[in-house]
């Protein structure tokens, strides 16, 4: 019955829709949930663009890129939002992205940014998250020498897992294999994704889990629980910068550029901390919310340039696999 009703309604609505341009943004699942940044961003952008912003959720960051590759140039997407710096080189190689031509103000981002294809909208540091009472190692070596147990994500199926792989690589280079061998007896298990790992940690299966320095902020702000901490490592912390890019084949290039610019304005940035639980790239007008993690000093930021991150991935994976298969 609804089908029959829907058709005439759609016909009635069609002329009205034709006047409102539509911007289709592919993003990862958790961005467009009722508690994610999606609804806030949508309402605020639609209020100023005179357009219809439509989010399409497609798994995680890696799923997002593979979805775009599956669809190729005929994709419906105008903007891809939520790739991270471990994926941007591969994303640029597809040739499916167009330069944005923007140079937004990003005072909170600890690294210089001049990528012509992608604009950052939030970022975070990978870190091990543990209970406050647990003794905190200060380096990967201390962690490896301790009896502490950790649960990590698989770099072959999850972006945080890949982040940890690049972290050890950026911090130790040729010694990465030895670090992994040292960590082997600390690793309780390697899960397919962040969800499984974080659940296992909360269930008490491990002393710590690979997550973000901002994870404890969720427990503080949403649950009023200050019992979780992120370990700070002397080697520095690998960064995940989440970016958005304009799809080259878009029929709404101006709108797409406006949206990318909008993502770095206060309206979007102030929503990021307590909806996406990441750092905004620009300081919100009211500052970071109370109880939210402070960014580490800028010299703690580790990040391989996108091309290098892509190049070291396969050899680093092989090192990881060999060291942990012993």
């Amino acid at each position: 019955m609804r089908r029959f009703l829907a058709l005439p309604l759609a016909l009635l609505a069609a002329p009205a829709l034709a006047q409102t341009p539509e911007l289709v943004v592919y993003t990862y699942d958790s961005f467009d949930t009722e508690w994610g940044p999606g609804p806030i961003v949508e309402a605020a952008f639609e209020a100023e663009c005179g357009c219809d912003l439509r989010f399409v959720a497609a798994g995680d960051g890696a799923a997002l890129l593979s979805r775009l590759q599956l669809e190729g140039p005929s994709t419906e997407a105008d903007v891809i939002l939520g790739l991270d710096t471990a994926l941007t080189a591969a994303a640029a190689d597809t040739g499916l992205f167009a330069p944005h031509g923007l140079s937004p103000e990003m005072d909170l981002l600890p690294v210089a940014w001049d990528d012509p294809l992608f604009v950052p909208f939030d970022w975070g540091y990978f870190a091990f998250v543990a209970d406050a009472g647990t003794e905190a190692p200060a380096t990967f070596r201390e962690l490896a020498d301790s009896d502490l147990s950790i649960v990590i994500e698989d770099p072959r199926s999850s972006t945080p897992g890949l982040g940890l792989l690049l972290w050890v690589e950026a911090a130790y280079g040729d010694e990465a294999g030895a670090i992994w061998e040292g960590l082997a007896d600390n690793i309780v298990t390697v899960t397919p994704g962040w969800t499984e790992a974080y659940n296992l940690f909360l269930e008490g299966e491990a002393d710590a889990v690979l997550s973000y320095t901002t994870s404890p902020s969720y427990h503080v702000i949403a649950e009023e629980d200050d019992g979780k901490v992120a370990w700070t490592f002397d080697e520095g912390h690998y960064m995940q910068i989440e970016v958005a890019g304009i799809v080259a084949g878009t029929d709404q290039p101006d709108l797409a550029r406006d949206f990318l610019a909008f993502m770095t304005t206060d309206a979007a940035q102030s929503a990021i901390p307590t909806t996406n639980w990441m750092f905004p790239v620009a300081t919100p007008s009211d500052g970071l919310p109370e109880g939210f993690a402070e960014p580490l000093p800028a010299d703690a930021a580790l990040l391989l340039p996108p091309q290098e991150a892509q190049a070291v991935r396969d050899p680093a994976l092989e090192t990881w696999r060999t060291a942990l298969s012993r």
Binding site: A62, A63, L65, S66, Q69, A90, D154, R156, S157, L162, A184, I187, V188, T189, V190, T191, P192, E196, L200, W320, R321, L324, S325
Partner: peptide, 24 residues
């Protein structure tokens, strides 16, 4: 993967996942 404890417990399905998601 979750209970396998590490890359020793790698299944064909994981290889498929990796091929489609990360390596395209």
């Amino acid at each position: 993967l979750t209970l396998g404890g590490g890359p020793r417990a790698t299944t064909v399905e994981l290889a498929i996942y990796q091929a489609l998601r990360f390596d395209f």
